[in-house]
């Protein structure tokens, strides 16, 4: 069973439905016990960093998340959920994140359109079980004004080009993050969720650099 963490905002139904479509059992839950009992966890997200951390703390979900992550269960953060994996964020003030992957969340700066909204190409940087069946140049759907800047660049699985290289996927052992929305990225996104499901089921595909 995959637990999709419900922390009060956002469209959780899409992630849920997408996981079901690719053949995995999933539940949307805000119950810390259910998160602990799950075989894998998805931390989705839209909304603001500070609010999300505040709610996770208040609801008791934060401890469950930390424990699940430490136990080595597959853990996937999507969009804001990916950013929450990092140490700090500068979204509306300074906020402390889950610190599961050292690094900072920064705002795009420059004379270009912010947020980045739309389909952009993926450049695969290193193999990961998440990218099995995904090819360099596949397009996925991004919506974000902030991006992650990991201290160890080695955690970056894929980047995209938006006025410079932007981390699109990261992985540190069992902790994975996807900046775009796989549940809204058509076949490519569904393939990644299938890969995550397989990981949770203990059948990881060998990721290929194509």
């Amino acid at each position: 069973m995959i637990a999709i963490v419900d922390y009060g905002v956002g469209n959780l139904r899409s992630v849920h439905k997408a996981l079901q479509t690719v053949g995995f059992e999933a539940m949307v839950t805000s119950d810390p016990e259910q998160v602990l009992a799950a075989d894998g966890v998805v931390l989705p997200g839209v909304g603001a960093f500070g609010d999300a951390m505040f709610y996770l703390k208040q609801s008791g979900l934060l401890d469950s998340i930390r424990r699940v992550a430490k136990e080595g269960k597959p853990f996937l953060g999507i969009c804001l959920g990916m950013q929450l994996l990092f140490s700090t964020s500068e979204e509306h003030g300074q906020h402390v994140g889950l610190n599961l992957i050292p690094g900072h969340v920064k705002r795009f700066k420059g004379d270009f359109k912010i947020p980045q909204i739309g389909w952009n190409t993926l450049k695969l940087e290193r193999p990961s079980a998440l990218t099995a069946g995904v090819a360099r140049g596949d397009l996925v759907y991004f919506v974000h004004s902030y991006y992650v800047d990991p201290l160890d660049r080695g955690v970056i699985v894929a980047t995209t080009d938006y006025h410079g290289d932007v981390p699109a996927m990261v992985q540190k052992d069992n902790i994975m993050g996807i900046q775009f929305h796989p549940e809204k990225s058509s076949r490519t996104g569904l393939q990644m969720l299938r890969n995550f499901g397989e990981l949770v089921a203990g059948r990881p595909a060998k990721g290929a650099l194509v």
Binding site: V9, V46, G47
Partner: peptide, 8 residues
């Protein structure tokens, strides 16, 4: 925007 994020 505050509740759901600007992108929404």
């Amino acid at each position: 925007a505050k509740r759901f994020g600007n992108q929404c």
